[in-house]
Structures are given as structure tokens and as C-alpha cells.
Design a protein around this nucleic acid. Sequence first.
DNA 1: TGATGTAGTGCATACGAATACATGATTTCG
DNA 2: CGAAATCATGTATTCGTATGCACTACATCA
Lengths: 347, 347
Amino acid sequence: MTAEKTLKRLKQPTMYDVAKLAGVSQPTVSRVLNHNKTAVQISAATRQRVLDAVAELGYHPNVIARSLRTQRTGMISLLVADITNSFYHVIARAVQDVARQRDYEVLISNSDHIYSREMHFAEVLSKRVVDGAILVPIHLTDQDLDGFLSLANAPIVVLGQHIQHPNIDVVYGDDEAAMYEAARWMVNERGYREFGFVGVPEDLPPGPRRWRGFKRALDELGLGIDPRFMVMGDFTIPGGEEAARALIRASKRLPRALFVLNDLMAIGVILTLQDAGYRIPDDVAVIGFDNIPESTIVRPTLTTIAQDSHDLGVRLAEVLFERIDNPNITGRRLFRTACQIIPRQSA
Amino acid sequence: MTAEKTLKRLKQPTMYDVAKLAGVSQPTVSRVLNHNKTAVQISAATRQRVLDAVAELGYHPNVIARSLRTQRTGMISLLVADITNSFYHVIARAVQDVARQRDYEVLISNSDHIYSREMHFAEVLSKRVVDGAILVPIHLTDQDLDGFLSLANAPIVVLGQHIQHPNIDVVYGDDEAAMYEAARWMVNERGYREFGFVGVPEDLPPGPRRWRGFKRALDELGLGIDPRFMVMGDFTIPGGEEAARALIRASKRLPRALFVLNDLMAIGVILTLQDAGYRIPDDVAVIGFDNIPESTIVRPTLTTIAQDSHDLGVRLAEVLFERIDNPNITGRRLFRTACQIIPRQSA
DNA sequence: TGATGTAGTGCATACGAATACATGATTTCG
DNA sequence: CGAAATCATGTATTCGTATGCACTACATCA
């Protein structure tokens, strides 16, 4: 009698168990537990009996069953391009904070910039395990997203202006304008007149935009850029290191200042150039983008362009929840966040 | 007729829809789609008709409904203490890789070392949204975990030797032994004989263990430690900076070498000491713990003790899946991973 | 050739909670 | 004081899938 199968997992109590103990019906239990969300009244006596029974049994609602019935999961997902990139940490934390206030869970995934992982993520979406998704699409196209959006009945919000889908909201830092301003600042305030650029392959989202802002400023100022001083990386520190080595290989003389597409690569560039004997910023100045925490760890500290990533995260989450609460919202809504130059030692 | 409510979300097709289109019953569809997991046979003709119907409708199984029926979610969760600490990134990635191979999703959460968040996480567990959990408990006690374990019918695996629960598997890096070896190495190989220690409050898990290993080596070598050279932080870079300032305040003369409980704090210590005019390692040597990527960014590069975090992550995931597959496993199984000294410039 | 398998399929039900509807008890008001 | 309104609760059904069981058709064997 006592020695039942201890190995067998104990079954969780259900609303029926609570109802039986309290001497009421299962729906009554449901109504007591959701009384804030339902208009139905429950007598104080019944409520108390139910609550006592809940406490006695240690009852927890089964989230799966509830989700099946309500068609809501209480979860949103967040796809970041690189979990090791601190830029996304702040965003993730902000998203989680907003979600926590609404009793939502956040499912964080990591694509490592890999297309198939982004696709996999979108597929999970279409199986309806989450009520909505925030993503940072690097490879996913409007077409891909369109397919998933019509399958999934969940809204999508993206970080990055390049997604043009007519029914996906976009939050972005205005990096094109920021690059433009930064280039002018480097010339006018800092006095640099010869630049190099460490970017990413053309088709990767932030690349073309940041390049355009940069190029526009240079054009207006009547400055050109030597093609040998343009190299590409892959957003990571090793990518930056490789890019720096490529620069050195291409020409023993380096440009006076380097714009690097993001901070991680900028750090890689600095470390490699220093190892090769160049002084930063005396021989080569370096400016990055993102203002990640590591930018204050490198020496010299990294001059960079800050996206207000906390704000980005909060907006992303808020915009998504608006859509979740009100599925009738349509259209491509745009939310812009300004960027800001953070002058430090490297440029 | 065509202009139905476009605003209304389209309903996903269900197995019934597929069944109707294929001219079979719903269970048959289920059997076709799960044929690898079920012993039942299906004729080739029927299978093809069903698959065609699936393709035509773009059917996706509803994961929620399946979970309710099977009592499995296909998700595990991972609670890390600090999402900004790179040490956990490698673990997260390793866990995700193992999970991916088994078609499991990983729900990453972040406690920020906050007790209430750890509790919240455990509660989610007990509502059965995941099939198992990996966690890095900082504040959670054996008692807490015991409560949740008996509520949840899901196994728990933890990182960190301090959890002694008789039914929770433990994976850990052998940091006590590593600190012991590192202390001997600092004395015998590097020649330091006067040490300071930057730790964390006594009750926080890795603290006492790492301290014990360190202390044991010093005792054996007949070296003492000046109480003024012992300060505490909170695992973070700002925590390390504050600790360094406390050290300087306590005595203008600093110890010859500093053991710091983890790399993030070690970096904070280095940056602050440098700003205060101390040369690393000439005035003060610093050794950290974890071997996070940032340890190669600081200058001087950080001498540290490496945990094989990829291995830790893989083990954690594998151990968890073993338990998920075989709920009859009981007991506290221990899995140890060795640590390794990584000599760099800071000590 | 009738008893016995076996492959292929449908029927009914269960998972746990939420909700439309029905019902009985109580109050309200003309 | 009787009809209608209101309150409190129960009954029945639903969400989408998996699975035990029943059933048919056909093959197998003695």
C-alpha cells in the first residue's frame, strides 16, 4: 500500500482533483483561478474552499492544456544572430524585462548567422509554440518571412530596416545617419582624411546601410577611399583579426583611420594591428559600432557608435505585445532609434 | 465570398483536414506522420495519399496538442546565472547543439544571480512546460530544488558540486583541485609568495570551494594571507572594479599577486589597478578563472584557469537526456571535468 | 475448409483547462 | 406577490493529437 512504484513519476493534480476536494465542479475551479480575467462572479465561500484545496494539493495549472484551449502560449521567442555578441545581451535583457511584466516567457534562440538555423526558428514559429517572435534576420528574406507569416498565426517584429514586408513591424537604430555623422565627425573634429573600411559581405543587412552613410559623407567632403583599404569580415573578433591581416597584406601602408562595421571586429582589428607593431590611434585610428561592454576593455578604449540597445529591446517587445494584444494591427510600422557617437581613445 | 475577414487570422489545418482530403481517418494521418515511432503498418498507397494531402495543405503538427497528449514538450530549459558572462555562452551553445540533434528546443533563461528569478524559473518547471532542466543554481538550495522536483515530473541537472540533492545529477569542473594546483604553480613556477584574494560572499557556490583549494595550497607551502588582501565582489566587471578600489583603500601597498574568483572580476581588477597606476604583472600579478574570450582582449592578457565549458555543456545535456529517456535512473550522479591553467601575461 | 493470424484501418477516448449554455436559487421591482 | 432580472454554479463541449481497442479483409496452416 505504501510501497507503490516510487519510480513512477507522481501525477500532478488537475482541476478535477481540486474540484473534488473542494466539493465543486471543475469549471468553478477554473473560474476562481481566473477570476480577474472573467466576468463571472464566485461566492466568497466557494472561492475560499477552492483556494484551500489548491493549496492543500499544491495544484499548478497545466500550461500546455491551457494553451491548447486558449490558443495562447504565454511565450514569445527571440532569435539573435550571435549569442556571444554582447550587443544582443542588452536587447535580450530588455525584452525579458518587458515580457516578465506581462507574465510572458522568452525563448531565446541563436542562429550564429546561419541561414538554416534562421529557417528552423521560423518553422518552430509556424507550429505555434509561441504567441509572437522578435528576430534579427541576417539571411532571411521578405519572401521567407512571408511564407512563415501566412503559416503561423503569430506576429513577427524584426530588428533591422532591411525587412520590407508589408505586415512586419520594424525597429531599427538609424545606423545610416549615424555613420554619416560619424564620418563627418572624424573629418571635421578629429581631422582624419584618409579612411579604410572593414565591412561584411554586401548582402548582409547592416552592411550596405552603414556603408552608404559613410560613403555619402565622404563624397560630400570630396574624399575618396582607396579600394585596397576596403576589406570584409564576418562580425566576429576572429573575423576582424583576419580582416586586419588582409589589410596588412594588401599594402604595407595603412589608412590613417579605419571604420569597422561593428565593435567585435573592431577589437579584432585593434589587437591584430597592435601585434603587428602599429600604434592605435597614432598610426591608425579605429572606430567601431555598437558600444558593447568589451569596447571599454580594450586598450586603447574603443571609440564607437552606440545604439541604444536597451531602448531597441524595449521597443521590440512593446511593439510585439501590441500586435499580440491587437491582431487587427496591420501594415509595416517603423520605429527608429537614434545612434550616438561615443568618443574614446581609439579615434 | 472572397472578402472574408482578412483581419481574422487564418486557422491552421489540422489532422482532420488532412484526413478528409486524403479520404482517411484522423488517426491514420497521425500514424503516417509518426510511423517511425509506432509499430503499426500503413500501406504505401495510403501513406502517399496522406503525404500528398499534408503537402497540399501545408500542414504542420500542432506541438501544443501533441504535448498535451504525449506529456512531452520537446523542450528543455537552461537557466544561466548571467547571460552577459561569456562563460555561459559556450555552455549554452553546447547544450543547444546536443538538443538540436535530438530535435529538442532549448529555452534559455537568465537569473542575473537573483534568487527570485531562480525561483520563478523553477516554478515554470513545475508547470511542466519542459521535459527537463539544466540549471546553474547560485542561491537555490537543496530544499528549494527538492520541492520543485517533487512537483515537477521532470529531471533536473545542475552545474556545480554544491548541490547535494540525492536525486539530482551534478556536472562540475573540479575547481577546488584547480585552485590548489594554480596556487602551487604561482609559487613554484612563477615565484610569487604574497597573495590577495578577490572572492564572492561565503554562501555563493563557487566561492568556498575555490577558496579552500587556494587555502590548502598556501597552508601546505607555509604561506599566510593578510586579511586586508581579501575582498569580495559579485562576479561582474564592475564588481571587480569595486573590489580593486577597496583593496587600494585598505592599504596603499598591494599584494604581489591576486587570485580572482572569475575572469570578469579579474578584468575589472586589472583595469582599475592600471588606472590607479599599478603595472600588471610587474607590480601586481593577476590570475582569473573561466578563460572567457575577453581574457585575451585585456592587456596584459589574462592568465587564468580554464574550465572546458564546451565539455561541461555537452555533459550537462547528455546527462539530462539520459534521464529524460530513462526516468528510472535515480541517485546523485557526479560528472567531473578537469580544469587547466592557461598561462598568459598577467601572472 | 474452417480455425487462426496478421496487416491495415476506423472508432472512441483521453490529455487538462476554458467557455457557451443551461439551470436552480435568490433578489428586485412593478 | 408574481414575473423578471441577477447571481452562482453545473453540464456539455472544445482545442488537436495519440493510442487502446475493435473490426474487416485477406493470407496461412492443418
